[in-house]
Amino acid sequence: MDKLILSVSPHLRAKTNTTIVMLDVVIALMPALVMSAVVFGLRALLLVAVCVATSVLAEFLFGLLCKKPCTVGDLSAVVTGILLAFNLPVGVPVWQAVIGSIVAIIVVKQLFGGLGMNFANPAIVGRIFMFLAFSGTMSNYQIPNDAGELVATATPLVATGDEVPTLLNLFLGNNNGCIGETCAVALIAGGIYLMVRKVISFHIPVVFIGTVFVLSLLVVPEGQTAINYALYQILSGGLMLGAIFMATDYVTSPYTKWGKVIFALGCGLITFAIRQWGSYPEGVSFSILFMNILTPYINNWTATKPFGGAK
């Protein structure tokens, strides 16, 4: 008999790993990826490819440079790349997307210690960085017209008069915005997949979206029905993408159930406040970043009460 393996129990593990979890997120993003190409044309796919390739390469080279084990196999850089690309208008130049991806992976993730150690969502900060650095291209929302040429039109959150899309078009994704955020039905399908696979729980998406919905009911403009206005608010902008895929990032959101609820409530409140009173039309990324920073405190406030534990 060869040497026996000695290890601490348990000697049995569930059939899962980080790669499988990340792969599930990638799969959940596929419907929205298809819809981004349908709505914005093939350039949307180019942006996704560029962001994913840059993210993976940046992760690989950083590991090589710092003599750390290669971690691209866990697919977390792929997720970051797709999410960052989903947050870009279709007309953003490739070189800007490359810089955004490098900031996301190197500055936000690797410099803090790599996967699991970053305090803010890399894709969110990458997007905010690009928003500040390349504000021209990042606020120039274009969409192909009937002839296939990219033309700038209003996004749902700033649209007025004839430009206002119907709820059905918002739901199906037939409206202007960042390439991955417009099709609510594709994003919701991905979210349901993640919940069925138990990758995420319902807490963050439902409370985040629910908070924006309820608060919107309080500020309905004259001439609109309350339900229509609130639905319009939750189907517009980056809310679905942010609430389902970005705010649920394990590393940067609370790990307790009540923590998730508080986190999502905060996200909803800030998103609503920025949309309502801020100078930006959209506030989803800022709200998530702000709550990312509060996450360690929320974890602390919502620590579990051990079964039978004395005071």
């Binding site: 000697h11 593990r13 980080t18 979890v21 977390s76 996967l115 394990y250 609370p254 790990y255 307790t256």
Partner: peptide, 15 residues
């Protein structure tokens, strides 16, 4: 196949 446990990777704080 049952005795060898997979190598640990960084905690992703999934909870």
């Amino acid at each position: 196949k049952d005795a060898v446990l997979p190598e640990p990777t960084p905690c992703i704080r999934c909870g």
